[in-house]
């Protein structure tokens, strides 16, 4: 088990290092790349805990989709680095205050919170039942938490429709390809044979 500990500390060090890199990198694209490294290494930590389903979902959703969009946007932005850095000293007290507040809250929560006090042991159910954790997640998500799950789905659906409605505009000046109309054309309506009498054509 010494090997697991070594791997854990390597991964943790990489996550922390990448996290520092996100805020320390001068180039915003490098920041996003560090963020991706942090996500990816966190997935490695999940695997060490035996949560392989969560690990791969993290990679697929965050690294494979969300971070690609981040990277997309950050690459396209034209950022003025000098102006970004100029306000650093002025905003430092506010930032430090927010950070301190969060730290105090975290300490309060984890110092007093008892996880599921009536549970007999802290070993997860799936580990005792020897289920794969994909099945364990499905078993609990679609039975006990099915309403919460459906509700989350509905909220996301509403958010998606909202985003579409906010950004959708019908531009009349753009000529779009209407494939159905193209396919529905027949020679009869698109070709006209004109008999031009000899000597009278323009």
């Amino acid at each position: 088990m010494i090997l697991e500990a070594i791997v854990f500390y390597i991964f943790s060090a990489v996550v922390v290092g990448a996290g520092v890199g996100v805020i320390a990198a001068r180039n915003p694209v490098h920041s996003v790349l560090f963020l991706i490294l942090a996500f990816f290494t966190a997935a490695g930590l999940f695997i060490l805990m035996g949560a392989e389903f969560l690990a791969f979902i993290l990679v697929i959703v965050y690294v494979g989709a969300v971070a690609v969009l981040f990277l997309f946007v950050v690459m396209m932005l034209d950022i003025d680095f000098e102006r970004l850095r100029s306000g650093f000293v002025r905003y430092l007290p506010v930032g430090a205050g927010v950070g301190l507040l969060l730290l105090v809250e975290l300490v309060l929560i984890f110092g007093t919170w008892e996880v599921a006090p009536k549970r007999l042991s802290s070993v997860p159910v799936y580990a005792r039942a020897r289920l794969t954790n994909t099945r364990a997640l499905g078993d609990i998500l679609y039975t006990r938490y099915v309403f919460a799950f459906e509700m989350a789905g509905l909220i996301l659906l509403v958010a998606m429709i909202g985003a579409i409605i906010l950004t959708l505009r019908h531009r009349t000046e753009v000529r779009r390809q209407r494939i159905a109309a193209q396919l529905a054309r027949t020679p009869k309506e698109s070709v006209e044979v004109v008999k031009v009498p000899i000597g009278e054509g323009a």
Partner: peptide
């Protein structure tokens, strides 16, 4: 899922 994750990193 591993295959899907790896192919989504390809970009």
């Amino acid at each position: 899922l591993y295959l899907f994750a790896v192919s989504s990193l390809g970009v």
